[in-house]
Write a protein that binds this DNA or RNA. Structure first.
Lengths: 147, 147
DNA sequence: TATTGTTATACTCTATAACTATA
DNA sequence: TATAGTTATAGAGTATAACAATA
């Protein structure tokens, strides 16, 4: 066998596909955020839900699911876990709706969590030129609006 | 019961979190791309792999897995399926490495697939201001580089 | 000894259908 | 009749461990 390599310089046909780069960038960020959140023994979904209830005390699962774009059926384990661990309380708002609020423990966790997330954001976006950051933000909202 | 609503105007604490918007935008795009690719009875992973081999004839699974950031163990079903359906051929490059190439059928599929993806990209990025698009592209690469 | 491809397996996220109870 | 929450379940994507064959 010679030392020929069948394909020693690969061409990436997706390098200039902006949709693909969007996915790869999102995944890169998400990987680090997952690590940051795991320090609190939480999953991304649990963290997101907790962040949401923190600023919307008294909201219901259905409301959160609609804003976050998560099926309400898939939020049940998330809420159950947060309640079980004493971060979240369900109180009957009416016979079928629960009003959700954080406990003191949940609020404390929320504060620590916010710092961790900000640290992750600082790493990824902290040294980005303000104009580029603003353009990125605008572009992302524009993309979401086209869904 | 009164008509009081416990939480009629929800605040989205993630609205100005750029990492979260990155994830939502990526998901919005991916949802539509998935639909476009399903028209060919393909999954995203299968489409991506095929696009890659098309411009890198003779490459190996391991090489593709490294560039795409996919574990080689998870690519086996993808390759197996593409071979089974006659889009891809494995030929022994040496005793342990397979050189991958598209069949005529695979190349034909690749052409149709490219059009479908371009259509999806056109929808999401076609009417975006060139300067914003360029800033978006730069920002995404910058984010990936920080992983 | 390191690498290629593979199998088996497990965990997370996401999706649908169907149920209870309440409005 | 529509909605809130739930259960069960199935499909993808992704992770590790371990193996055989080969460099």
């Amino acid at each position: 066998m010679t030392t020929e390599e069948p394909c020693d310089t690969l061409i990436d046909p997706l390098a200039d596909k902006i949709g693909y780069q969007l996915r790869r960038a999102s995944l890169a960020y998400l990987t680090h955020l997952t690590l940051a959140v795991e320090a609190f023994d939480l999953r991304i979904a649990e963290m997101t839900f907790l962040m949401f209830v923190a600023v919307n005390p008294g909201c219901s699962q259905g409301e959160v699911s609609r804003v976050l774009g998560v099926k309400r059926t898939n939020m049940v384990p998330t809420v159950t876990e947060l309640v079980k661990r004493g971060y979240l309380v369900r109180e009957a708002a009416d016979g079928r709706t629960n009003a959700l609020t954080l406990t003191a423990s949940g609020m404390s966790l929320h504060a620590s969590l916010s710092e961790a997330i900000d640290g992750c954001d600082q790493r990824f976006f902290g040294d980005m030129a303000p104009a580029k950051l603003e353009a990125l933000r605008d572009a992302l909202l524009e993309i979401r609006a086209k869904a």
